[in-house]
Design a binder for these strands. Structure first.
Lengths: 273, 273
DNA sequence: CTCTATCGTTTCGCGAGCCGGAATGGCTTG
DNA sequence: CAAGCCATTCCGGCTCGCGAAACGATAGAG
């Protein structure tokens, strides 16, 4: 037996994180919860400080306090931590959302995204979303820059997948041609055969100084905002590439300049002030 | 009328973020909730994926999914985003917790902390905790590096405070001597007149290329782990100073190398893949 | 080995308090 | 000025969360 009210509240909090501003009506449509229930949940979250009710804008939004709900979790890969600031900076400057994805078995998983920052989105849940490796920009950018050996292992795994989006793994020559093209371009884009058609993603790999491919960094834009896809690529590819290099440099500095080793006693009880 | 079950669940989630591993008994002691209630709440959070029950260790901990409860919130200052990776790297390397604090009126507020990462702590809620400006390392490191004009304004504000920890603001000469000492040392430590006595914090300012003092970066350690406080300072001050410089450089790069401006259409609906 | 203390978890009947359809009132729109 | 949409409030009904007590497992002491 689980507590329904809590499940509902968590779902509401999730939805609130999808958009900068949320009306009761939107939340009602997305969560299927009765409006009075929503109002009660939101009031509870508001009094606890996690949510703000901006009456001028007529909507609810998450407040700074939500960060403390995950302040105890920093187990993510350092590349995500190093990349967040860059992703945020790019979105602030260029408006379009940026995401960082890491490989997980035969998919990529989005580990950080600025989607909720900049826009009203019909899509949900971009963080922790799985992306297919062979049709999505983030996947191709990762796969194309793997070394021959690693790449072959990966393709073998993909062939065992029953996801129709991985069909290309059975046409090895065609796939390799695509990967080589991505590699020589230095970036990948989403396959035109998959949804959504009204947007495109440009992705580049984040490669450690050691040469290991760690993650991919992608920017998504609305096709309608540009005269051609080439125009968008000309503009954003250099930005993404230099950001990826910068993230890699940060990682390098992070592990080296902090590297005065201390092997002394284990800390056990402490507070930060 | 608010929903009690939700308030309780949020409190439990907060407590779970304070320690890497939490037993029912600990949570019971801290939240004052009956154990069956805790079990029910934890089961609910577990089924929703926010909490893991590591039966081997016999305790509950937050899982990666909690990050999605705040994935929509990136409105914080960029200096926090730029600093997180460095704070995490230092803690991973040197074990002791590191925090970033920003000024807020006459206090500092901790905006990021690695406290929950490394240890079992009797202290709670370090993120969003307010620190007094004149007795805490993070406050002194900030105040001492303000320019004369800004600093005077700040001291005037502090004199209006009724917080006994700000008493020093009424002894301007004594305070200025202390601030000058901090400034020439390049770091501050917590006043020995305030709790907790068994630990100390070393803090340095994070100063933008423009010269503006943005935040402070502090490391807290147990006094018992070192022969003398000087020993700890000799070891960690250089690390903190170089990290503060690195954060400042990152900020500079973040705003410059991304600076190809785009003034085109507003994005409105998009997903990241 | 047994006894005991303490842990996490389950049980179960009571009743507080959450639920949601319907009503309210404000605000915009045609 | 009516009509539609919105967020919010009301209130009777009845679920469903509550927590004292019991349970089973584990660890340490004697």
């Amino acid at each position: 037996m689980t507590i329904r009210a809590i499940e509902r509240a968590m779902n509401v909090l999730q939805e609130l994180n999808q958009q900068p501003i949320n009306t009761i009506a939107q939340l009602h449509a997305r969560t299927k919860l009765p409006k009075p229930t929503l109002v009660r949940i939101l009031r509870t979250l508001e009094e606890a400080g996690y949510v703000e009710n901006d009456t001028r804008q007529g909507g609810y939004q998450v407040s700074a306090l939500v960060t403390s709900l995950s302040s105890g979790f920093h187990k993510g890969p350092l590349v995500v931590e190093a990349g967040r600031a860059w992703a945020i900076a790019i979105t602030r400057k260029h408006k379009w959302p940026v995401a960082i994805a890491l490989p997980d078995y035969d998919d990529m998983i989005i580990r950080f995204s600025t989607v909720p920052d900049s826009l009203i989105s019909p899509f949900h849940s971009t963080v922790n979303k799985r992306l297919c490796m062979l049709t999505r920009a983030m996947g191709l950018a990762y796969l194309a820059f793997l070394d021959g050996e690693d790449r072959n292992v990966m393709i073998d795994i993909l062939q065992k997948s029953d996801n129709p989006e991985n069909a290309l793994s059975h046409h090895r020559d065609k796939l390799l041609r695509l990967l080589n093209e991505v590699r020589s371009n230095g970036y990948a884009t989403r396959s035109s055969t998959v949804e959504p058609r009204n947007s495109d993603t440009i992705a580049v790999p984040i490669i450690a100084k050691s040469g290991r491919v760690l993650a991919s960094l992608g920017l998504t834009y609305f096709k309608a905002a540009f005269g051609s896809e080439q125009e968008a690529r000309d503009r954003y590819v250099p930005i993404l590439k230099s950001a990826a290099v910068a993230i890699s440099e940060d990682l390098n500095r992070l592990s080296s300049s902090v590297a005065i080793d201390v092997s002394s006693a284990d800390p056990s009880a402490i507070s930060n002030d």
